[in-house]
Simulated assay, not measured.
Amino acid sequence: MIERFSPRDTISPMHIDISTPPDMAWQEQALCAQTGADFFFPEPGSSVREAKRICGMCEMRSACLEYALANDERFGVWGGLSERERLHLRRTEPH
């Protein structure tokens, strides 16, 4: 729309940097990125066994758990731990 009201060839293409921030780069290598969110965000009362199995094989597991704890993720399986397990971990961590 801007081009329509601007003289021809006066608008240079915008450069948009869509690179991943360094603290989120682990997500690109995580197995869950290749698997899909269904396992990691199951319906209430559903099993998280498959998500935990996948997390157990993932090299990014510790970075994922660290992210979840730092950002207070309350839903889903992160770093191989369920919501309840992360809550328990937060309560037992020294402050």
Rank of each mutant, 00 (worst) to 15 (best):
M1W: 14
E3M: 11
R4F: 09
R4G: 09
R4Y: 09
F5T: 07
S6W: 11
S6P: 07
P7Y: 14
D9C: 03
D9W: 11
T10I: 05
S12C: 08
S19L: 01
S19M: 05
T20N: 02
P21W: 07
D23H: 12
A25R: 03
A25C: 02
E28W: 01
C32S: 04
G36C: 10
G36I: 08
G36S: 09
A37W: 03
A37Q: 10
A37C: 05
F40N: 07
F41E: 11
F41I: 07
E43M: 03
E43I: 05
S46N: 12
E50I: 11
A51P: 04
K52D: 06
K52H: 09
K52M: 10
R53K: 15
I54K: 06
M57E: 15
M57K: 15
C58K: 13
E59K: 15
E59L: 14
E59S: 15
M60Q: 15
R61C: 05
R61Q: 13
C64S: 04
Y67L: 03
A68R: 01
L69P: 02
L69C: 01
A70E: 11
R74A: 10
W78I: 03
G80V: 09
L81M: 12
S82R: 06
S82T: 14
R84N: 06
R84S: 11
R86Q: 04
E93C: 00
P94S: 07
H95R: 09
H95E: 12
